[in-house]
Amino acid sequence: MQLNNIIFVYQGEVTADLVSSILQMVENKLEGEGEDRKVKKRVFNVMVECLQNVYHHLDALPPTDPSNPVRDKTALLMIGREEKDYFIITGNHVLNDRIPDLKARLDRINRASKEELKQLYQEVLTGTGFSEKGTAGLGMIDIARKSGQRLGYDFHPVNEKYSFFSLEARVSRIPEK
């Protein structure tokens, strides 16, 4: 990954206003560079879900304990472009005991075919599917549908309580026919 491929990178606290500003900025940038309309919309859609996922996750956390060495309300957001793909990467701390559930969900999404993802989306949307809390589950499925590629992820251990969770979604720059 070369530095000039990066459209935007941010590390810090994530507020609703910040999410709005990033969306606006990246949208203007895509607009200005005359990116294909369909690609632009997909990138924007995936970006909205990725950023809002992180925002909702951090927003739901209790206030940070000052004695906590892990800045659990801090996130990493990065958007960039390579020859074939746009990539959207988010990173945030998660409690280790949440990892099995997250991992199972991501693996299930990554294993699903296009048709299965559609079915999964409808099940979660109508609340008839496997137990999913809120709309966070829907967000991940939507990202996978719009991306059309496997979601990349990693859990990097920080200490006995936390890991750093990173998620990468890619959107092809070549509009499918």
């Binding site: 919309k41 924007f44 859609n45 909205v48 879900e49 809002q52 949307l125 709309t135 829907l138 967000g139 939507d142």
Partner: peptide, 9 residues
Amino acid sequence: EYFNTSSSK
């Protein structure tokens, strides 16, 4: 033009 997944519900 666009909607997010929380709007979809």
